[in-house]
């Protein structure tokens, strides 16, 4: 049986310590905790499942497309159209900008310089991640997996602070979501392989959009989103 290795570059890119600013975002779970929608490991897992199967799939497919050479301008327009919330649009561009800055140091590549010139105010994060993955020698499957994983790892990590969730329980939630993360990554790669921006998934989560707007107006909050 063939042994398949994960590229160590993927571990670097998906590492929570990669300095791309992701730690400042809760993926909408801070608002969900405040509104009583999430309060324990079980409701956190349900939150993550919903996020993964909606915006997780949409973002992972954008990343997979960008990693396989899709036009970043068209993909950025597609990402914008799939993100109606101004708060989430701004956060995604800010995260894209921060990721690109870190990646230009980590994996110098003309494609990254070109992306920075094309989007001085930042491209949407999944699009940047796809281009970065390619620069790091990774493929569409790696990019989709990284994005799908961070769709759930962000809220889970945030809940350790927001709920005082036992880190062992938090990690158990992530482990239970590992298989769905892989399924979403596979679906994202399959959608990207159709090579048509209009056929990329468009799924959104209404409550994530709605709550992001009121969350952005809170005077004091732990997380940016």
């Amino acid at each position: 049986m063939a042994v398949s290795f994960v590229s160590p570059a993927l571990l670097v890119l998906a590492d929570g310590r990669f300095p791309a600013g992701g730690h400042a975002h809760s993926g909408g779970v801070e608002a969900a905790v405040r509104e009583g929608r999430v309060g324990d490991a079980a409701s956190l897992e349900a939150f993550c499942a919903g996020r993964l199967h909606t915006v997780g799939l949409t973002s992972a497919a954008l990343a997979a497309s960008a990693a396989s050479g899709g036009d970043p301008l068209a993909l950025d327009e597609a990402a914008e159209a799939r993100t109606p919330s101004p708060a989430l649009r701004a956060a995604s561009r800010r995260l894209g900008r921060q990721l690109l800055r870190a990646a230009r140091a980590a994996w110098p590549d003309p494609a990254l310089e070109q992306l920075a010139r094309t989007f001085p105010r930042g491209a949407h994060q999944p699009v940047v991640l796809g281009v970065v993955a390619a620069a790091a020698g990774l493929g569409a499957a790696d990019a989709a997996t990284a994005v799908a994983y961070e769709t759930v790892s962000g809220p889970v990590t945030a809940c350790v602070r927001l709920l005082g969730l036992d880190p062992f329980q938090a990690t158990a939630v992530l482990a239970r979501l590992a298989e769905p993360v892989g399924e979403i990554a596979r679906a994202a790669v399959a959608a990207a392989a159709l090579d048509d921006v209009d056929l990329l998934p468009t799924l959104g989560a209404p409550l994530l959009d709605v709550a992001a707007e009121s969350h952005a107006a809170w005077p004091v909050r732990l997380f940016a989103t």
């Binding site: 909408g28 969900a32 929608r37 999430v38 409701s43 349900a46 939150f47 993550c48 499942a49 919903g50 996020r51 993964l52 199967h53 909606t54 799939l57 327009e77 597609a78 159209a81 799939r82 109606p84 769905p180 209009d198 998934p201 468009t202 799924l203 959104g204 989560a205 209404p206 409550l207 994530l208």
Partner: peptide, 26 residues
């Protein structure tokens, strides 16, 4: 001709997991 909105939902029995959960419809 410029794409300005392209979003979808998939909810109800048989929709992907989490549709009735705290991120989507609660």
């Amino acid at each position: 001709a410029r794409l300005v909105l392209d979003q979808s939902t998939d909810i109800g029995t048989g929709a992907p997991p989490g549709w009735d959960g705290p991120a989507v419809l609660a």
